[in-house]
Amino acid sequence: MLSIRNLHASVDGTPILRGIDLEVKAGEVHAIMGPNGSGKSTFANVLAGREQCRVTQGEVHFQGHDLLAMSPEDRARAGVFLAFQYPVEIPGVSNIYFLKAALNAIRKYHGLEELDAMDFISRVKSKVEMVKMDEALIYRAVNEGFSGGEKKRNEILQMMVLEPALAILDETDSGLDIDALKTVADGVNQLRSDDRAFIVVTHYQRLLNYILPDHVHVLSNGRIVKSGGPELALELEERGYVWLNELTAGAA
C-alpha cells in the first residue's frame, strides 16, 4: 500500500529525515517510536503533504500514486489521513459542516454521490457515540475551545467518518488520560481491516497495549535504526531510548 524509499526531508533548511525506507502493506499496523527530535512528526507530516516539511530526496508510492507529487487534498481524497498532534482550531466553521465537506470531497473523488443530510447525520451520530464525544461538540466551531482530550477524540471521529485507507496517528496518545487513550485505540481497532493500514507514531509504548502493532520501528536522528515486532516496543519501554544512541552511532 505504502512504499517509502530513501526519504529525506528538511524543515526550515535543517535536514530532519535522513533516508527512510519503509513498506506498509494493507491490513498492517506499524508503530513508529523514537525520542523527541528523532523526526517522528516530520515523517507523519511529510506523508500528509505539509509544505513546511520539504522533501529533498526519495520516493513515496501510495496505492500506485506518486504521493509526493500530490497536493495535501488529493492525498486525503486518495485515502491518506493524518490525525494531528495539535489539532487546529477553526473559529466560524462548524465541525459538522467541515466533516460533511471533507466526506463529500472524498466521495466525489471516487465518483460517489454526495450523502444526503439525513444519511450523513446518522452516520456521524453513530461515530460520535463510539468515540464518546459530547454530541454538542459537532455543532460547535472546529476544535474551538475543545479540551486536549476532546480535540483528540475529534480527530478519531474524523478518521472514523472518513474511513481512510491509510491512517497516520501523530502522537494522538500524548496528553490523554486512560479513558481517552482507550477510545483512540477502540477507534483504530474498529477500523482495522484487511484493506486498511495504520501508522501509529508515538513516544510511549502505552498506546501499543491497546493497539497491537504488526511492526515496530525505531526512529532516531531521521533514520529507522531498528525494526521488529511488538516485543520491540516493550524492550524500548524497559531500556529507554538512550540505548539507541549506540545503534545510531553504529549506523552513522
Binding site: 487534498e73 494531528f84 487546529v88 467541515f98 465537506a101 471533507a102
Partner: peptide, 25 residues
C-alpha cells in the same frame, strides 16, 4: 492562518475552498 489551511486540505478540502471557508468564517 496557514495551519488552518493545511488542516482543511488534509481533510480533502481543496486549497481554494479552504480559503473560502476561512474567509467566510
Amino acid at each position: 492562518d496557514e495551519e488552518a489551511l493545511f488542516y482543511l486540505r488534509s481533510r480533502a478540502i481543496d486549497a481554494a475552498t479552504a480559503r473560502i471557508f476561512l474567509i467566510h468564517a
